[in-house]
Structures are given as structure tokens and as C-alpha cells.
């Protein structure tokens, strides 16, 4: 199981580049190497951009696990409990009726709806968590480099660093380094 410390560390979130430098990186391998170098240089404010998910980046950037599963589990529990208890309340105390000779409290028939609402609540919780933790929903945001949604890779270094430092840090990995313009 993931420890609570891991969960807390998982609270990292996306932040919009406002200061610093953006380096356009040549390819996937360079991006991973660059992320490792930046991480080892002790830079805290940085981010990588790629057109597709790269699992090795998580380790290279020093990111810990996403804690979405915990939120999903809470969603599942809420949905299931809500569905089962409200059906029980309605059938047993609010509007008890005998149907098909079955007892008021007939758990087997509550299972389908309980299951569906469990899934529905889990899906909403997961979606909400992904949007919140990934900081999605701000339509005016644009990528640091236009190509990172197609075939480009980029790394953003937000901590105070001179251009020379960034250049020497990413020696041989980048094709271009430009300041973040806001």
C-alpha cells in the first residue's frame, strides 16, 4: 500500500510557466535525460511537456504516484452507500409495499442499482480529481511551445537560472532555449 507520506507528496500539481526558460528538446530520450539533470540540479519549479505520456518521466522528474485511486475509492464508497441506504430507507420505512411476495428489505434486488451508482460516483470522482489535480479547465492556456501537442518535447525551468546555466545543464539535449513570455 502507498503510505500517507506518498499520498501527500502526490499532491503536486501543474503550474503555469510564468518565469524562467523553456528549452525545446530533441527527442524522448533527451527529454528523460534532461529531466534527470534538472531534478539532480535541485530545481524545484520545472515541468516537462510531451505529446504523449512517458512513464519514465515520472521517475526522472521525481514525481510520486498520483493519488487519484484514493479519491476514486471515496467516490465508490459514497455511491454504493448512498444507493443502498436510500433504497433500503424507501422500501422499509418511507413507502413499504409488498411486491411479488418479497420481503420489504430484499437486498438482491438492490444490488444492480447499487452497483451502477457505485460506478457512476467513481467515474465522477475520478474525472473531478483528474481535472483538479491536472489543473485542467483553463481554456485560455496555451502550450509553452506550439509543437508539444504534435511532435515536440520541451522542458520548462522556472527557478532563477541564467541562460548560460540552463545551456550548460542541458548540453547537447536541446535545440532552442527561449525565455518564458507572458
Amino acid at each position: 500500500m502507498t503510505s500517507f507520506e506518498d499520498v501527500k507528496k502526490g499532491l503536486y500539481r501543474y503550474e503555469d510557466p510564468e518565469t524562467g526558460w523553456v528549452a525545446v528538446i530533441k527527442d524522448v530520450d533527451s527529454l528523460i535525460a534532461a529531466a534527470e539533470k534538472v531534478r539532480d540540479a535541485g530545481v524545484k519549479k520545472f515541468d516537462c511537456f510531451s505529446p504523449f505520456p512517458i512513464h519514465k518521466l515520472e521517475k526522472a522528474m521525481g514525481l510520486s504516484r498520483s493519488w487519484i485511486p484514493f479519491i476514486s475509492a471515496i467516490g465508490a464508497l459514497t455511491g454504493g452507500t448512498f444507493a443502498f441506504s436510500s433504497m433500503t430507507w424507501i422500501d422499509v420505512s418511507n413507502w413499504p409495499r409488498v411486491m411479488g411476495g418479497k420481503p420489504y428489505f430484499s437486498w438482491p434486488i438492490y444490488v444492480p442499482i447499487t452497483f451502477e451508482l457505485t460506478v457512476l460516483f467513481t467515474a465522477f470522482a475520478t474525472l473531478g480529481a483528474a481535472i483538479y489535480l491536472g489543473r485542467l479547465g483553463k481554456s485560455s492556456r496555451r502550450p509553452v511551445v506550439n509543437t508539444v501537442t504534435s511532435d515536440g518535447f520541451a522542458i520548462w525551468i522556472g527557478d532563477d537560472m541564467s541562460k548560460q546555466n540552463v545551456e550548460s545543464l542541458l548540453q547537447g539535449l536541446y535545440t532552442d532555449i527561449r525565455p518564458v513570455t507572458k
Binding site: 501543474y14 487519484i68 485511486p69 467515474a123 483528474a130 491536472g134 485560455s140
Partner: peptide, 22 residues
């Protein structure tokens, strides 16, 4: 519709988890 997607690794990690759970 693209809700401010910029391909950040910090978004991808949550996104991938979400896809897995969904």
C-alpha cells in the same frame, strides 16, 4: 473543448491514472 491541455508531465500522470481507473 481542449480545456487548457498543454501536455505537461504533471497532468499526464494524473490523466493516465484516470484512464486506468475508468
Amino acid at each position: 473543448l481542449s480545456i487548457g491541455w498543454v501536455g505537461s508531465a504533471k497532468t499526464w500522470i494524473h490523466y493516465e491514472k484516470m484512464v486506468l481507473i475508468l
